[in-house]
Amino acid sequence: MRRAAGAAVRVAERRAAAPRRTAALLPRTGAWRPRPAAVPWRSFSATPAAAHGNLHQCKPGEEITIHFVMPSGETIAVDGAPGDNLLELAHANDIDLEGACEGSIACSTCHVILEPEVFDALEEPTDEENDMLDLAFGLTETSRLGCQINLTPDLQGMKVRIPSATRNVQSEKMQNT
């Protein structure tokens, strides 16, 4: 599969497909609500995009391009709008980033690794986010929870690495998880 080379093409494809996705998005609610019995499409991400709220709309030219670096090394470029968070953006674009608690800082599954300069430029993570990062596998100095990174124009072109979730599972000490 061609990835990094064809990024621009795929972004264009995604834009073309975007209205269909957003039409299926449900408004975000705190309470559980039953899903529609029949959904006309099926997402391959583990968490349905519908559970992650609306992506923001923005004017043409204001898109912020984010490069997701997958565990396999391939890079996928996607466009978001100011205000989107990385978890929502990943799910809307079918990028395999788990989000078990749907962005409520109650799990560490949307752990991503940022570039040092981007990490330093962002506000410090809250205590609650750091508590959850403690439980993330493969924690690095520049780790964050994807659901807590909101897109701003400053983040234009940033790289977001999604760490491998399965490497060395059995050698990891399971305590404190």
Binding site: R35, A37, T47, A51
Partner: peptide, 14 residues
Amino acid sequence: EVANVTHQFDALVS
């Protein structure tokens, strides 16, 4: 919030 994970399981099976 921890139970939010059931949403994706429900979507998967349903």
